[in-house]
């Protein structure tokens, strides 16, 4: 469950998802030291003692660190960039799964139980799986509205906020399109919110967080300029999308959405809807079909073959494809795949 950190910045503390279940208990006995080594086997006993002490102390070392749990890997990656080795970051959902329908595993409850800070993507993306977990975790520190809760969607402007909502329109989000994080220009806003929150919860390390954030922001600006330059070349092109995952990016760069494979959000394609798309595509001028990694690509593949339009599989989160190891490589990969 570890989110690989950005290569440009030093490697940060790894997640402890692989830690044995009893490790947490050992925190309660950190003062236990090995006895004076016997002179005969001094070296081996000493080595053993050091290993034992390390094992016992390891959990104690990060016990003082701020424990951050994020819903999606992309948030964990941004948070790691800012928090570095002064925090312990862990994410719940897998990056290659549909973010709308994560299975609420009880093991997530155990992680939320001990979190000091929970960072969610918000805009109702987690509504289908997070609320029962939070309810069962019994951790008031990370309840919505508490100090240890951060909803990132509050720091950006959401698009496509529906005037009225009805489930007739499929799985719509009343607050607007929740995939705002797939626009690189929104990431600095998220990073700033995370910095503010980390500094508020852990003021001792505020300076450290600020300097890491500064480095990250500088790097992001440089990367952004490069991505924006490449994406600008796609201006005016028409695309078909499976689900409205990339609308923020498309809109910012003047890429036109000609249709979606889903007839309505969350509803799989029907043959009648595909016929309609075929009508649109037969007019020509469609440059790509954008497909995610978790939904069936049968419809996209069919249209791609029929009209000889490339299907581009885009990662929607860190970990969705092997190359998207962190928040920067995620966008490197998106831009690379779009540019092909």
């Amino acid at each position: 469950m570890k989110t690989k950190s950005l290569r440009a910045l030093p490697e940060t503390e790894t997640s402890t998802a692989q830690k044995p279940p009893w490790a947490a208990f050992s925190r309660f006995s950190p003062r236990r030291r090995s006895k004076k080594p016997n002179t005969h086997h001094a070296a081996s006993v000493l080595r053993f003692a050091v290993i034992l002490a390390l094992l016992l102390w390891a959990p104690a070392l990060y016990a003082g660190k701020l424990k951050v749990v994020t819903t999606y890997p992309y948030i964990a990656s941004i948070t790691e960039q800012i928090g570095g080795d002064r925090i312990k970051v862990d994410h719940l959902a897998r990056g290659d799964y549909d973010p709308h329908t994560i299975v609420p595993k009880p093991s997530f409850i155990a992680r939320l139980r001990r979190a000091d800070l929970l960072i969610i993507s918000g805009a109702q993306l987690e509504i289908g799986w997070l609320p029962p977990l939070l309810r069962q975790a019994g951790n008031p520190t990370v309840n919505p509205g508490a100090k240890g809760f951060l909803d990132l969607s509050r720091s950006v402007r959401l698009i496509d906020v529906p005037k009225s909502v009805s489930r007739e329109q499929g799985d719509i989000h009343p607050d607007g399109n929740p995939h705002y994080y797939l626009d690189p220009n929104n990431i600095p806003l998220l990073a700033r919110s995370i910095l503010t929150k980390l500094s508020a919860l852990d003021s001792r390390n505020a300076g450290y967080y600020r300097s890491r954030h500064g480095e990250f922001a500088k790097l992001w600006n440089a990367k952004s300029a490069e991505w924006n330059r490449k994406l600008a070349l796609l201006k005016g092109k028409k695309v078909i999308e499976y689900h409205k995952n990339f609308d923020y990016l498309l809109r910012r760069h003047g890429i036109l959405l000609a249709g979606t494979i889903e007839p309505l959000p969350g509803i799989p394609p029907t043959s009648r809807h595909i016929e309609e798309l075929e009508k649109i595509m037969s007019g020509g001028g469609i440059s790509f079909i954008l497909q995610d990694v978790y939904n069936s690509d049968d419809a996209s593949r069919h249209l791609s073959k029929k009209f000889n339009v490339p299907m581009v599989k885009l990662p929607h989160d860190v970990g969705a494809v092997p190359a998207a190891e962190g928040i920067i490589s995620l966008f490197d990969e998106i831009v690379r795949r779009l540019g092909q």
Partner: peptide
């Protein structure tokens, strides 16, 4: 009354 243990293993 329920209690969730503060462990990596989910225990309730």
């Amino acid at each position: 009354l329920t209690w969730v243990a503060p462990t990596d293993l989910y225990l309730m």
